Simulated scan of single mutants.
Amino acid sequence: MKTRIRRYRPADRKQVLAAFRTNVPDHFPASEESWLRACLDDPDGPLFVMVEGKGKQQQVIAFGGYEISPFYHLATLVFGLVRADRHGAGLGRALLNHRLRHMTKSKHRPRYVTVDTHPHTAGFFERCGFIEIARWPGGYRSGRDRVDLRFDLDTLN
């Protein structure tokens, strides 16, 4: 079925939360749901959903956004998740590329894009051109290890 990426709307909230929950506990601890809810309620940057279907039949299958610092040449990816039953289909890469390209059109176009993630998903970002810049054992409050990665937006073709 054909997918498309569009801006997040408040009507998507329930499906975004449901997609998040399919990734608990393997990719996100349940405790991060409160942060996701806060992000949806008061975003610091654009948020996007990948949907499948048309009209009222649309299903959210992926979600993610980003924030851009007005003071530094830096953006940070916010979330970035694909419904667990759709992992491995290239949807995460498509959503990531959409966000990166969207940043290049920003008034405050960043030079670098950072993301923090768990070691088991860091490889995805490395395959997409990100470079590991730090590793923090127990770096998340949940006790999980944290990996920080950076992408040079000037390398985007």
Rank of each mutant, 00 (worst) to 15 (best):
residue 143 G to H: 06
residue 48 F to S: 02
residue 11 A to P: 00
residue 71 F to H: 15
residue 130 F to T: 04
residue 97 N to V: 00
residue 146 R to E: 01
residue 76 T to F: 11
residue 93 R to A: 15
residue 75 A to S: 13
residue 133 I to Q: 10
residue 116 D to L: 09
residue 31 S to Q: 14
residue 125 F to H: 10
residue 120 H to Y: 12
residue 143 G to P: 10
residue 10 P to F: 03
residue 4 R to Q: 14
residue 104 T to F: 01
residue 4 R to I: 02
residue 93 R to Y: 00
residue 121 T to Y: 08
residue 111 R to L: 11
residue 154 D to C: 00
residue 57 Q to W: 00
residue 78 V to A: 08
residue 96 L to H: 03
residue 15 Q to Y: 06
residue 32 E to A: 12
residue 21 R to W: 08
residue 137 P to H: 06
residue 9 R to F: 03
residue 96 L to N: 02
residue 58 Q to C: 04
residue 107 K to C: 11
residue 122 A to F: 12
residue 74 L to M: 10
residue 24 V to G: 02
residue 17 L to N: 06
residue 157 N to H: 11
residue 122 A to N: 11
residue 113 V to N: 06
residue 112 Y to P: 00
residue 30 A to V: 11
residue 125 F to A: 07
residue 29 P to V: 13
residue 99 R to S: 00
residue 30 A to W: 09
residue 22 T to S: 14
residue 43 P to Y: 08
residue 40 L to R: 03
residue 84 A to L: 07
residue 125 F to Y: 15
residue 16 V to E: 05
residue 115 V to Y: 02
residue 110 P to A: 10
residue 93 R to D: 07
residue 140 Y to E: 03
residue 154 D to F: 04
residue 155 T to L: 13
residue 56 K to E: 12
residue 143 G to E: 03
residue 18 A to S: 14
residue 146 R to D: 00
residue 61 I to S: 10
residue 132 E to P: 05
residue 68 I to M: 03
residue 23 N to D: 04
residue 6 R to C: 14
residue 43 P to H: 08
residue 133 I to L: 05
residue 145 D to W: 09
residue 143 G to Q: 07
residue 157 N to M: 00
residue 119 P to S: 07
residue 152 D to R: 01
residue 75 A to L: 02
residue 114 T to D: 00
residue 110 P to Y: 05
residue 154 D to E: 11
residue 141 R to A: 10
residue 6 R to W: 02
residue 116 D to M: 13
residue 96 L to K: 09
residue 99 R to H: 01
residue 152 D to A: 06
residue 90 G to E: 11
residue 90 G to F: 06
residue 38 A to V: 00
residue 87 H to S: 14
residue 45 G to E: 01
residue 77 L to I: 10
